[in-house]
């Protein structure tokens, strides 16, 4: 394989006391790939993602993101990634433009650049009328699209999306995935967690986590033929049925 790897992960673990939230996971993510990270609630997806983003120190194992080490070079990692957390985390009492301006500025873009890019972004999102509205007033679907746009505003190498479409209607989810495809087309690697199996089908490759371990890792079609089932739902059921951790 001569594909460039942007994330490498070897026996990465996170322990909270005696509890292995993430237990020796190993995988690589290639550049420009849409990598789906699946698992039941409590399987350890968010913990794994937080380690890769430099928000949390691993307990053991190795990992690099964009070529930087997750133990020592978190601040370099942070320059090269975008992150959209499970919890909506733009500032509700700032307007759309002000949020974009702030996060652009924090990533080191200068004011002229921010102005140009945000004008373009508002146009593509079709939010010209709402640009000066407080983000708190937007409907959830719009908020999520905006949060994604802000996460890739500084053109990171990789963007981490933690359940980006939770609670969003099917139409908006579809539009959201269109945005993900567009971003992937520009060369941004997408690392996305989800519960929706139809979304899993959109990914180039997926990994399924059960009880802190990666139990399956392949493209959706290979996984289906491997488990000899017709849908990702069935693949997931077969794997998750054996889980000992109860869903929260």
């Amino acid at each position: 394989m001569d594909e460039e790897k942007v994330i490498t992960c070897k026996s990465l673990s996170k322990k909270f006391g005696d509890f292995y939230a993430v237990n020796e996971i190993t995988f690589d993510v290639n550049k420009g790939e849409i990598f789906g990270f699946l698992g039941a609630n409590g399987a350890g997806k968010t913990t794994a993602m937080r380690m890769l983003c430099g928000l949390s120190f691993p307990s053991s194992g190795e990992a690099t993101v964009a070529g930087f080490d997750v133990y020592k070079q978190q601040e370099f990692i942070k320059k090269n990634i975008g992150y959209m957390s499970q919890k909506f985390s733009l500032y509700e009492n700032l307007s759309i433009l002000e949020n974009i301006e702030f996060f652009g500025g924090v990533y080191g873009l200068d004011r002229k650049e921010i102005k140009e890019r945000s004008g373009l972004l508002i146009q593509t999102l079709g939010l010209e009328k709402e640009a000066k509205k407080m983000v708190g007033e937007l409907p959830l679907g719009w908020k999520q699209k905006l949060a994604f746009s802000v996460a890739i505003f500084h053109r990171p190498k990789i963007v981490f999306l933690d359940e980006p479409t939770g609670g969003v209607d099917p139409v908006t989810r579809r539009q959201f995935w269109d945005m993900i495809y567009e971003a992937a087309a520009t060369g941004i690697t997408i690392f996305v967690t989800t519960h929706y199996m139809d979304e899993a089908e959109y990914c180039n490759r997926i990994s399924i986590m059960v009880d802190g371990k990666v139990e399956a890792l392949d493209s959706p079609s290979n996984l289906k033929s491997k488990f000899s089932v017709h849908s990702m739902d069935d693949v997931f059921y077969q794997l998750a049925r054996g889980a000992s951790r109860s869903a929260d």
Binding site: C53, G54, L55, E75, K78, K79, I81, Y83, S85, K87, F88, S89, L90, Y91, E92, F103, V106, Y107, G108
Partner: peptide, 12 residues
Amino acid sequence: MGTIEQINVTPI
């Protein structure tokens, strides 16, 4: 609000 996480993941 969870916004601090968004801050912590930036190179700030």
